[in-house]
């Protein structure tokens, strides 16, 4: 008889992890590091947006941006645009890393990157370019 009770108790214990998990269904994104990355990306976006619109810069499937069509950028500005892309990617990489770290799961970085990659594309305006899963550039 006692054994049966013990088994039931053990079964009940299985529900504990689920209850703990249900409580933390949100990701922590309010840290000073993340806030400053957001701010820097927001300021840069004002300069990047024209390049999204004319197709010079597109969104890669791994959550970054890349020069898609260099001919859309006047020669004189090409260096500047390249610098923007490189700075933006640095911030994006740091953002994914910081979110993973803020949630005490550095190993989540890759999944966070993938999630962001999908959401940047999903929220991109029509006319902007992105890299499809196959790797080919596609216009929204």
């Amino acid at each position: 008889m006692n054994r049966t009770i013990l088994y039931f108790l053990l079964m009940a214990l299985f529900l504990v992890p689920q209850a703990i998990y249900a409580e933390e269904a949100n990701l922590e994104v309010n840290t000073p590091a993340i806030a400053s990355l957001k701010q820097s990306m927001q300021a840069r976006h004002a300069q990047l947006v024209a390049n999204y619109e004319n197709g010079a810069v597109g969104f890669t499937k791994d959550g970054l941006v890349a020069l898609r069509d260099a001919s859309a950028v006047p020669l004189a500005q090409r260096q500047h645009v390249n610098a923007l892309i490189s700075a933006e990617n640095q911030d994006r990489n740091a953002l994914y890393r910081e979110i993973a770290r803020a949630n005490n799961h550095p190993e989540w970085e890759q999944q966070i990157r993938t999630t962001f990659g999908q959401r940047w594309i999903k929220l991109a305006k029509s006319g902007w370019w992105y890299q499809a899963a196959s790797g080919s550039w596609t216009q929204k």
Partner: peptide, 21 residues
């Protein structure tokens, strides 16, 4: 459970950050 990645929460967080940026 501890390693499990909260995909829905990540999507929500991503949308919030992208909306701000």
């Amino acid at each position: 459970i501890n390693i499990y990645f909260p995909a829905a929460a990540a999507e929500k967080a991503a949308d919030k950050i992208i909306g701000e940026v």
